[in-house]
Simulated scan of single mutants.
Amino acid sequence: MTLLRTMAIACAVLVLAITSLSAFIRLSRAGLGCEPWPQCQAQLLREAKQGAAPAPAGAVAAARIAHRITAVGALLLVIAMVLAAYGSAPPLVRKGRLVVVLLGLAVFLAVLGRMTADSRLPAVVLANLLAGLAMFAVSWRLVAATRPAGAARTLDAGWVRLALALLVVQIMLGGLVSAGHAGASCPRLAGCDLGTASWQAFNPWQEPDPGAGVGAGALVHMAHRAAGILTAIVVAALGVAASRRGHRAGALLPALVVLELGAGIGLIARSTPLALALVHNVLAALLLATVASLLPERRWPRAACRRAA
């Protein structure tokens, strides 16, 4: 049990690095950080659709190499975790199921990356984003599941699942904003440019059109903002309830919610800087993983953990 928990922590760290590198590559390809902003973003998209996209910058090329190396390391670690879970005496079947889910997600991401390396479909971006964050959440869930039983009282599973569902929807909307290059659709905190807004921005199977206008993704951006407020309220309330019941992870949720809201506001106020967009992505991963760790599960007693270790 102790070995599996140590490997789960290492896996969570590796997966967080992978998702951060993937976000850096994706957002850099989308034009974040280019000059002059936002005109350069549309120009980059036109060049890509015409097959004349420039070679990746040195930082992006280095990030791709680091991403591949880290992904291979994470896959090998997950395989070792499967052997540790089912090779122990007695086998850690419940924990092994989480490890098998990790292995399935890792294989899915590897196949997806191989088959859709140059795809700009929002559906591919969403699949990559959600699978990567799910892998991080499952890794952290495994860390929580291998911790000896404490005195914390069980939370209502329905409320935890509701918070998870809202977070997933919010992450999907954020992915559509990113994949649809809609960052400049709402340049002000007070409102969005709806002049050229289109419902097609919600279609993940349609590539963004560089001629659709800056405000084409305004509706997605507005939905992301509205869902963000609702999600923040539910997740923060869940954190307060979890903290009162003795869950250490619950105390983190209100702080993470405030930081995530601050990062989102900063993205709008400062015209979507790349560094802040990456922070926004990392905070979303931490929120998802923290809420997932609060799902009720029967804990191992301390004595059993020592015997299993």
Rank of each mutant, 00 (worst) to 15 (best):
V234T: 08
P254E: 06
G262K: 01
R248N: 10
T272V: 14
H224T: 04
I265M: 08
R245G: 10
P254V: 05
A277Y: 00
R244Y: 12
V279D: 01
V279H: 05
R270P: 09
I229V: 14
L230K: 07
L252Q: 12
R248S: 12
A227N: 13
L230I: 15
S243V: 09
G266H: 04
P273C: 00
A227E: 12
L278Q: 02
P273F: 01
I268Y: 02
N281C: 11
L230A: 15
G264F: 00
A275P: 13
L253E: 05
A232G: 06
A255G: 15
T272S: 14
L238Y: 04
V235R: 03
A277C: 05
L256W: 02
R248L: 11
V234W: 05
A236M: 05
V235M: 08
V258H: 04
G250Q: 03
S271N: 15
P254R: 01
L230F: 12
L230C: 10
G266I: 07
P273H: 03
R245S: 10
A251D: 03
L230H: 09
G239C: 00
L259A: 15
N281I: 12
V258R: 01
H247Q: 06
H280S: 01
A251P: 02
N281W: 11
G266V: 07
A232C: 06
G246S: 08
S243W: 13
V282P: 03
S243H: 12
T272I: 11
H247K: 08
L253F: 06
L256P: 00
I233V: 15
A277E: 01
L252D: 11
L261A: 14
G264V: 00
A227G: 15
L274H: 06
L253H: 03
V240A: 12
R244H: 13
V258N: 05
G262H: 03
G250H: 01
A242C: 07
V258S: 07
R270I: 05
T272W: 14
L252S: 10
I229K: 08
L267P: 07
L256R: 00
L278D: 01
G250T: 03
G262R: 02
A226G: 10
V258C: 10
V235K: 04
A249H: 08
P273L: 00
N281T: 13
T272E: 14
G264C: 02
A237V: 13
A241D: 13
L230M: 11
L274F: 02
H224F: 09
A269V: 09
L267K: 14
H224A: 09
L267H: 13
R245K: 11
A263G: 12
S271F: 12
A263I: 04
T231A: 09
H280C: 02
V282T: 12
L278W: 03
R245Q: 12
R225Q: 12
T231P: 04
G246C: 09
G266D: 03
A232L: 04
L278M: 05
V240N: 10
L252W: 14
A236E: 07
L259D: 01
A277W: 00
L278R: 04
A275T: 15
L253P: 01
A249Y: 04
S271L: 13
V240S: 10
V257Q: 01
G264S: 07
A236S: 09
P273K: 04
R248A: 14
I268C: 03
R245P: 06
P254S: 08
A275H: 15
A269R: 14
L276G: 02
I229D: 11
A269I: 06
L278N: 02
L276H: 05
S271I: 10
R248I: 10
